[in-house]
Simulated assay, not measured.
Amino acid sequence: MIEGVKFYGSPLQPRQPKERPMAFGRRRGAELKEEWAKIPADVDVLLTHTPPATILDVSPYTGKPIGCEELLKALTKKAPAVHVFGHVHNGYGSLAKPKTLFINASTAVERRGAQGTINPPVSFWVQKKADRKGSSAGMLITAAAP
């Protein structure tokens, strides 16, 4: 919690094929569903390594989405104001949905930073709004996202 804004982060991602081992991999389906259930219901800013399925997650190799289906399901229930992730480098950018601003902040343009090409940093500003009585009521989001 920072100045009334609740953050939650996770390095988890769907397990990759054996020829591409990566840290923090979990099996798609029940194993990831159990992990994403740990996201607090009142989270304001969610930080994950992996994107949710179908959101800024198209593989440059297959042309298909490779994000996490279980994460997408969890987000429809939890609806953080902002979800920041990476992993799929060519998905760099942002997408505003009615309840959540999704930001793929992948640094490297090429796979694992090949050829030294990097994306510009992404910044966003988020603040709890107060109602007339002084209690928190919703989020005010200003994003300088790509």
Rank of each mutant, 00 (worst) to 15 (best):
Y61K: 15
K99E: 08
G138Q: 02
T50Y: 00
I55R: 11
V109W: 14
L56Y: 01
E69Y: 09
T76P: 00
A145M: 02
D131F: 09
E35R: 14
A137E: 11
P65H: 07
T117M: 14
T62F: 06
K97E: 08
T100H: 06
D57T: 05
C68N: 13
T100N: 03
W36N: 10
P98V: 06
T107H: 12
K6W: 06
R132G: 06
A23R: 11
S135Q: 13
I55D: 06
L71G: 10
G67H: 07
A143I: 04
E3K: 10
A53F: 13
A23S: 09
I141N: 03
I141L: 02
P40H: 07
S106N: 01
E31L: 13
V43E: 07
H49Q: 13
V5S: 00
S106I: 12
G29P: 13
P11W: 12
S59M: 02
K64R: 08
S59L: 04
V43L: 01
T100Y: 03
G67C: 09
A130K: 15
G67N: 01
A30D: 13
K73Y: 13
P11H: 07
G25N: 11
G63W: 03
K6Y: 02
Q127I: 02
A105Y: 12
P17L: 07
D44R: 08
H83D: 00
A145Q: 08
G86P: 06
Y8A: 04
E31T: 09
A79F: 04
K129R: 08
G4L: 01
A143T: 02
H83V: 10
A114E: 14
V126Q: 00
K133Y: 03
E35I: 14
D44M: 01
T100L: 06
